[in-house]
Design a protein around this nucleic acid. Structure first.
Lengths: 340, 340
DNA sequence: CTGTTAGCGCGTTCAC
DNA sequence: GTGAACGCGCTAACAG
């Protein structure tokens, strides 16, 4: 690594400056006090030789990489992108870089990838929404220090940074209820997804809070085409009396809206639609998509804070759950008179 | 790195198996032939002690990280995401991981970030669409081995993997011309963006090829809100006779379509709109957005191929330019009778 | 085929 | 305040 052929080393600098390697190392790290004259000479030599210390050698002796790894199921998911970006920027301010490991949705490889990635880095960020909980708990112990993103892990000795999907769904149902909706369809996410389970809990709690509401679950998915394909099931629910749809996320909602438009179903007149995540496109859909906003970048920042503490040997800091914020837009509207 | 307290080292394994470190190293790397009995003992010890070799120590002695860095201006850009994903998956198959460095659109920091990232890795991928060309040429020499993404660098000793924006725009103009459009507006991208310059060259060539066509440039941008905000300029061009718009990319096109819809301008009846990149959402817009498709994942794969060759000491392989493919959809249509 | 030795480049004790 | 020497964990020479 470093330069192409024989990289200049600390020994070269020492020789050039007529001092010992130790002194060079000292001025490099600002350790203890060094004679100003030596400092000057060393710095001059460093500049002249264009010396750059080897991060690898430093890593070996320091036992630290200044690198953290982030394991994600799919780098193209807008949610993970935002978190990665937030993490990357926050870590950079402390001289850390982020290694990405995309598991390509392959749950079976996740564990091995995580362990391998952790091996190369000082800490790990785990986004593994579909990993069985027991497996995740075991893994988390094996790869410490680690921070888990976006799924609850009660009792585990790990900071979790995530989104309060339960509350988000409840707030969304409240919103629809206020608009007069009493029959709602939930276009669910991937069956094994932890955040889908959380959303379903939200649905259950909402039902308990609103005895006059009924919520039917229809198969959804997590991507645009899943939403597009869910139109049949959604329309069946609509014929059955549903006046609003909550989609697993914005992509599903957007795909669904596209298909509904093609079929001549007008949103929100015939059917209200709401998504989740508030991706950039949500505010630009036609009609603008009502969604629950999630602070992706800030989640990444909070992940870094906890990671840094752990790396420095600090305590396992508190987990944190962000409450999604309702972004009420044009895709949800009051139920037509006489239908409610 | 490695385990939490004192990681078990190769020496522990050697002692446990009653052999020398060299032998352990040999079975670990499958080097030369080792007595089957020793192999068995060593493997048993490795398993029992749960030994994992230190990547850092290996890096130091091998002079290799098995890591490459990718520098991007904005991790949230769908184009770079797709490339990153393709690169990450391809590299993983060869045991390499990718380090990301987001420059947050800060052109002034790009050089330093690139050098620092390169220092930690075996090679570099550079996405720097706004860096002045002279600076980029100098940088490219300093961080070799390196592959440049998505901007031409004629004569430089670097593989470039990119998109033929010139041809893409020409094909797009051909498409619009076939539909009868003679007055077209180009909603341009960031002024300093290299790919915007390429697109403008495409516009110029298209004009030369179609003397009967006129193309006006209006300020666009690169994001959804830029497109939304460009509606005034676009409408002015429309009043002036333009019947079609080519946007810098799909985000601009989508943002523009949103605003036009709000203003009651019907696409494509009143105005045809085309984008570039064919992001996933393009096929789900209303109307579906005509776009030039770009193989993001494959670009990442090609980047890796060239990177790997370079890392292994191979020659600078040929650059490659992908021709975008026209995805003609509903947002572009024939000019109304009598208007052409 | 195996063990011993010598570094990779750097930080850090120790004496001076 | 400074330098010599050792070690981080591993691989690659070289002997045996």
């Amino acid at each position: 690594m470093g330069q192409r052929s024989r990289a200049t080393t600390i020994a070269d600098v020492a020789a050039h400056a007529g001092v010992s390697q130790a002194s060079v190392s000292r001025v490099l790290n600002g350790r203890s006090s060094v004679d100003p004259e030596i400092v000057r000479r060393v710095q001059a030599s460093i500049a002249e030789l264009e010396y750059r210390p080897s991060p690898t050698a430093r890593s070996l002796v320091n036992g630290r990489n200044n690198t953290v790894a982030m394991v994600v199921p799919d780098l193209e998911n807008p949610l993970f992108q935002g978190i990665l970006k937030g993490l990357s920027l926050a870590a950079a301010r402390d001289g850390y870089r982020v290694l990405v490991a995309d598991t390509a949705e392959n749950v079976d490889d996740e564990e091995e990838i995580a362990v391998e990635a952790r091996q190369r880095c000082d800490a790990l960020v785990l986004c593994a929404p579909r990993m069985p909980e027991a497996k995740l708990r075991a893994l988390v112990d094996a790869v410490s220090p680690v921070v888990v993103v976006n799924r609850p892990l009660p009792g585990a000795d790990v900071p979790v940074v995530g989104v309060d999907y339960v509350r988000g769904i409840r707030d969304l149902v409240d919103h629809l209820h206020d608009l007069g909706h009493r029959r709602i369809a939930y276009a669910s996410g991937p069956p094994t997804s932890a955040s889908n389970a959380e959303r379903r809990r939200g649905v259950a709690e909402a039902l308990a809070a609103h005895p006059d509401v009924r919520i039917d679950e229809v198969p959804g998915g997590s991507r645009l085409d899943d939403g597009y394909a869910a139109s049949d099931a959604v329309l069946a629910a609509h014929r059955d009396g549903c006046t609003a749809v909550i989609a697993f996320n914005d992509l599903v909602a957007l795909g669904l809206m596209t298909r509904l438009h093609e079929l001549g179903v007008e949103v929100p007149r015939d059917l209200s639609i709401a998504g989740f995540d508030d991706v950039p496109m949500a505010g630009f859909a036609t009609p603008r998509l009502t969604s629950m906003s999630v602070p992706r970048g800030e989640i990444g920042g909070q992940v870094w804070l906890r990671l840094r503490t752990l790396i420095e040997g600090g305590p396992v800091e508190h987990s944190v759950l962000y409450s999604p914020r309702l972004e009420a837009r044009g895709s949800t509207a009051a139920v037509a008179e006489g239908v409610a």
